[in-house]
Design a protein around this nucleic acid. Structure first.
Lengths: 341, 341
DNA sequence: CTGTTAGCGCATTCAC
DNA sequence: GTGAATGCGCTAACAG
């Protein structure tokens, strides 16, 4: 039992006022060299640690930031959590991780609680139903940075993947290999990524002069089951697609399963391209080609942006919130092959 | 700009003292029914939200708990993060998630920072090098619950998987299918799980009257590479094992890869059993049998234990810290088969 | 049942 | 360069 050594204890031990102690330990040359050193030593000996609550109450800054995501299963969120956490800690911030399950009500409650804790900032993948709350927070001086999804209701600093371009590049790649019937498994239209990836796919087809065939598209929730269902649906067609573009990342497992069910070999029988890289894809046999959406870069940029606005000096309130896009990259491995002539 | 409405604003608006306002909103019948209702209404109208910092400073309780894990890649940690987060939030606690990367120094810093924030409690998978700090925290009134790994240096409440029994059960299963040469890929001896799973494996062999052959064991860090290396090593033997028990969970990907390299079919050419279930295993083709170490149950129990000690009434300081074990379960899918006669 | 008074631990203004 | 005093927002005695 030793804890709870306060600034006053340090001051008493050093026979100075508590104010001096505070200044010495702040260490910005507000005290004499000697007392500063002395106080520092005594504080260390006593094991003094400033009470973050008291400090926060006084300074109105907690060095806490909230990170709000839908889950930790999705690879992007996982990367986001790890990267943001690390980046912020390097700058002396603690990360409070919260999970909304993509539920607006939970999200609302979480935002409120985070505000109660007086977090200094917030990085969030919004559900899209609490934009007003986020905007209020932001304009009250708590910077909010959105990631992965945009909240359509309101203008806010947002870091997104370049999904239209990524899906375009992926489809294009397949097209260049000679594929004409490309099945697409994608997220629902209600989500930014679902919509944007579909649009990239369509644009690539159009440019290639291929008519868009809605029956080649299977949209569904972000779950393996979607992949399995989509796979079956597409494979049951008389004119089976020669390539599958799995642009709903969580579906990949289901698609792999569906392909195995039909004893279809990748890439001999069918080409396979996925969206969003993850460790499993590279270890797969054959290793699966992907459009890497750049989760790490997104996380880093989100951290950068927030950190930037967190710095005391800066803070031009909002020259209209900017949107950032992280470019996608095609990573060719061994799951795509030219269509047989 | 509306924020920062304080208790005083509410009190003034209601023309009562700030203390009365506090009591009314606390709502434990310390005020008259009518004023309570009135204050509650006014507070809502004004959008009053208590300042968690001020409250924490006063009450010495923050409803913050720290969750410290090595990473978010490991399935157990992911489950831990999701479950603990959800369970605690249901009880009004926020979770501060921190990642140590299994590095004692980072861990030490994290523990200190968490203490600075005056977290009410801590759930941690310890590196094993900061036991003293954890013990100090605990005996200072901040309950600490360890999970997944035990800190050998010190007695503390700990929730672990029943790894010896799990490994025993898994090995036993393979034995009962007639396998005699069972390759084991496992974590390093320095880790609790590495040691314990190895011991379970050995015990099962002994009971079956089979001599332990160290060359059938490949121990290594928790990475896919370990699986690949182990797989190659074991498969290169003249007397190739007829079954592989992958008890270092992260290695599974590498093992799958290694098997594919050699064009070995599971379960026809070789049986495969993994430790720790994860979504991918069930979706694999063939679906992979596993010893489920019960990550969810562990997370729930850890949350239960901490919550229990967080309740105001309870707190018999420490009748010698207890250790809990979550039983493992064998889940049979389609990756194991009797050895050919 | 309600108001007054005192801090929680710290940073900071104002004197000296 | 240092000390005394003030208050951040809230809860908890202590009176009335």
């Amino acid at each position: 039992m030793q804890s709870t050594v306060t600034l006053r204890d340090v001051a008493q031990a050093a026979k100075v006022s508590i104010a001096t102690a505070s200044r010495a330990l702040a260490g910005e040359g507000l005290t004499s060299r000697s007392t500063e050193a002395r106080l520092r030593r005594i504080a260390a000996e006593l094991g003094y640690r400033p009470n973050a609550l008291a400090r926060g109450l006084k300074t109105r800054t907690t060095r806490l930031v909230g990170l709000v995501v839908h889950n930790l299963t999705n690879a992007s969120f996982r990367v986001l959590a790890e990267v943001v956490q690390r980046r912020l800690r390097a700058e002396g911030y603690q990360t409070i991780l919260c999970i909304t399950a993509d539920d607006p009500e939970q999200e609302a409650e979480i935002i409120a609680t985070l505000a109660d804790q007086r977090v200094d900032g917030l990085i969030i993948c919004p559900t899209g139903h609490n934009g007003a709350r986020l905007a209020a927070l932001d304009s009250n001086g708590t910077p909010v940075t959105c990631v992965v999804r945009r909240d359509e209701m309101v203008e806010m600093e947002t870091v997104l993947a370049a999904d239209p371009e990524g899906a375009y590049a992926g489809t294009r790649h397949l097209l260049e290999l000679g594929h004409r019937r490309i099945g697409l498994i994608v997220g629902r239209r209600e989500t930014t990524s679902g919509r944007e990836r579909l649009s990239g796919y369509r644009r690539a087809l159009e440019e290639a002069g291929i008519a868009f065939d809605p029956s080649l598209v299977h949209a569904g929730p972000y779950e393996p089951e979607t992949g399995l269902a989509g796979c079956r649906q597409l494979l049951d067609r008389a004119d089976r697609p020669t390539a599958l573009f799995v642009a709903n990342h969580e579906s990949a497992l289901g698609v792999l399963r569906g392909l195995a069910e039909r004893d279809l070999l990748v890439p001999d029988d069918i080409s396979l391209l996925c969206y969003e890289d993850m460790p499993g894809f590279a270890w797969q046999r054959p290793a699966i080609s992907v459009v890497d959406s750049g989760a790490t870069a997104m996380a880093d940029l989100a951290a950068d942006r927030l950190l930037q606005r967190l710095r005391p000096n800066a803070a031009p309130p909002a020259e209209t919130a900017r949107e950032y896009r992280i470019g996608a990259r095609l990573i060719q491995r061994h799951s795509c092959r030219p269509v047989a002539p």
